[in-house]
Design a protein around this nucleic acid. Sequence first.
DNA 1: TATTTTTTATACTTCAAGTCTAAAAAATAA
DNA 2: TTATTTTTTAGACTTGAAGTATAAAAAATA
Lengths: 292, 292
Amino acid sequence: MNPRKKQITDAAHRLFSENGFAQTSIQDILDEAQIAKGTFYNYFASKNECLIAILETVNEKAERRRIELAQGENKADENVLVSQIAVRLDMNRYHNLLAIFGSVACSDDNDLKAFFKKNQTKELNWIAKRLVDVFGEEEARHAVDHAVMLTGCIHQIIRVWNLGANTEMATETVVQFALDQLKPVIREGNKKAFFPKNWLDLTIDSLSTDYMEMKQQLIIRLSNLTKKLEKEEKAKNNEYVQFLLKEFQSENPRLFLLESVLLSLKHVFEGSSYELEISQIVKMAWQVLDSL
Amino acid sequence: MNPRKKQITDAAHRLFSENGFAQTSIQDILDEAQIAKGTFYNYFASKNECLIAILETVNEKAERRRIELAQGENKADENVLVSQIAVRLDMNRYHNLLAIFGSVACSDDNDLKAFFKKNQTKELNWIAKRLVDVFGEEEARHAVDHAVMLTGCIHQIIRVWNLGANTEMATETVVQFALDQLKPVIREGNKKAFFPKNWLDLTIDSLSTDYMEMKQQLIIRLSNLTKKLEKEEKAKNNEYVQFLLKEFQSENPRLFLLESVLLSLKHVFEGSSYELEISQIVKMAWQVLDSL
DNA sequence: TATTTTTTATACTTCAAGTCTAAAAAATAA
DNA sequence: TTATTTTTTAGACTTGAAGTATAAAAAATA
């Protein structure tokens, strides 16, 4: 990273950790980093952008540490997983990020929101994958469900702990406890999954903020869907999808038509097994429409 | 509630729901409620106070609804519990409160923080109690653990669902799923509990913002502790506790002494079974010290 | 009707975010 | 080295929201 940029993020990082994100003004950062206002705005458009830069370095650090922890170990070793998960919690705590994660929900900055969404999705995906490593292939279909529950438990335990205690609980203890508790759930394999297959992958697709790219992905998903519907000979429902596909691909998509068809689409697929996929597609489509 | 106050909170409530808490300026509220700035500040010292007033009415509504749902039903009926838990989630969703809960973490308003802490503690306590209703007395020792995990799972599932879908998931479905998943955990009774006995009650004690009251509670807890230590003949450790008790009760507590003893206290009890209780007491004590 | 309380309109202060500019300093090219 | 370009600086300026202050009007109460 550009040394001046680093000088700024370092200063901001110190202040955010010590005093909190919302409590730190840009002026504070300027004073701490000993730079002029113009310089700051030369590198960042806002405090939020500066925060993203910081969080990215923290992410990289966490990722490296996780790789280190796995080095030379058996990837099915539960203890490795526990300490790997704890790495991120420790990072959060060390950098006082919990408070920041809170402030983000209140911010209406779309970039920042997208950043956090992407992060969370990545983290869950990673944990799901590792659960399969540890608990075997038969875990695959439920891995996302379990990753979600595991992280939910861990965070809530930490939150509640902090309600009443001022000592810090060792993160590994929490992770280990949550995992132990959930083991009977994980082992009980014959259950119906909550989240649809590939839920997180599909989610990631819709996280792009580049509308051209998003449109491409939308078209891909629509054409996949239409193929699937063709196979199942659901011609009636397929009409809608094919229409959307054609219209989105055309030179000048007619907005009013797309809007109208999107509105009906959800109703058409209500109750079908495609309901969820449709819901994601519709969401993406509206975003693309906004950009047209 | 005073009709004018209600007029203001109603307007604010509308705006918070529609546009979000952070996005609503006080001026917006004045316009919506058709009142002058002075009137607003006549009833609330800040936007946060206004928010608390709103949340209190929502709380009451949720509480009433839960009582209704239990009317004439068997309190051990799992389905009642599920819909009772869902009540609050529906409230949150209906009033768009999730975003608000986020913004609170970023606020440095102590009253607001205390309010949320108290709310969360109450909710967990309530769920823990109800878990005992449904799963029997043998659940008592683990009820808090399970309440924490259950709420953690529920919230995380909803969060992740909202990452990728734009349809709203029926809250009862989520609650039912989480509860079903956790049943093997709940039924496996012979585990070590994570949260100490009465954790939440103890936590509630430390939520008061009235320092006099807090001091009284601190004294009560110290004297309980010293009695317990006496029974166990831990004279050495008891010296510290008894000293603190006497000093806090004295007319003019010597701050420097208290500070110094509090610092050692944690080390003295490190590793003992009192570690957690001590940690809470120390936390309270520091708050009381701040007020002296 | 007289008095007190509440409400209003408006001006004011404070504070932080962010823009703009002209000059100084530093980096780079010739 | 000198000339040119880029980066940095200091500080003035705009905007917008929070919150304070005040005197007059309106409403409630005695």
